[in-house]
Amino acid sequence: MMPVMHYWTFDLASLAILLALGLLYGSMAGWRRQRGAGLYGAGLVLLALVQFSPLHTLALTCSMSAHMIGHMLLLLVVAPLLVLGLPRRPTGWSATHIDRLSAFFSTAPWIGWLMGLGTMWFWHIPGTYRASLAHGDTGIIPLCTLAGPSTDWAANLIHLVHPISLVMAGVCFAWPLLGPRPSQRMFPLTGVLYLFTACIGCSLLGMLITFAPAGSYYPYVPGQSYYAMLSVLPAGWPAEPAVDQQMAGLLMWVPGCLIYLTGAISLFIHWITDDDEAGQIAPVH
């Protein structure tokens, strides 16, 4: 195992988020295991991995590509898993909320679209992007980590908002497609268009990052080795800043688009082979 795999960080904030999400599910599902709990659980596990695994440390301290992988996982994998895993028979208080949300997104799916795309773009404005990283002047990752105390209140807030906003945006984006009320979901072919346009929006951002002048997105402090991490990275890691930025842009551009595309295709296949619609079998005379 590579030594870098030992760099797990546990921060209380993420732990709290996970706990809250777990409790939310419990209360919605009436503390019973419902269909889809596995998917919801998988979403939580993945979220935990993004927040705690070495990927997180890499993302905050030296690799834009790692950061990008984190973004994509949160927005395009974790969030849809959470939405898909929502209980089909929610209990009392949550049922009305879920109904309301579903009704809202079925009348205005473009809001989900804008939330998803907008949030992705927002976190890649160079200024906000930089704010979501580790800060060189303090020398530590500013979160209420178990490893050290926080020093900067504003930075902490951003670090809290960053993953939450991505997951929330992803949930809004996925809701019109995968929401827990199948009757309120978008018509699958419209869904294909929804995903395709989102893919274009994402590709544009990916292109911008890929071809942006080297350095626009690379505010990592060169040589700053958090937790002596640099010394244990394999040769060639982290990649040259210019290459790393390109790689990050391309990750969003190509594999990012492939995620949307896979979604579109599976949406289509499910729809065409789904027997739920009425009137498919002719009355046999």
């Binding site: 544009l204 292109m207 911008l208 071809f211 942006a212 002048p213």
Partner: peptide, 9 residues
């Protein structure tokens, strides 16, 4: 994109 290319890059 053409504008962005010529003005920002």
């Amino acid at each position: 994109m053409a504008f962005v290319y010529f003005s920002y890059v």
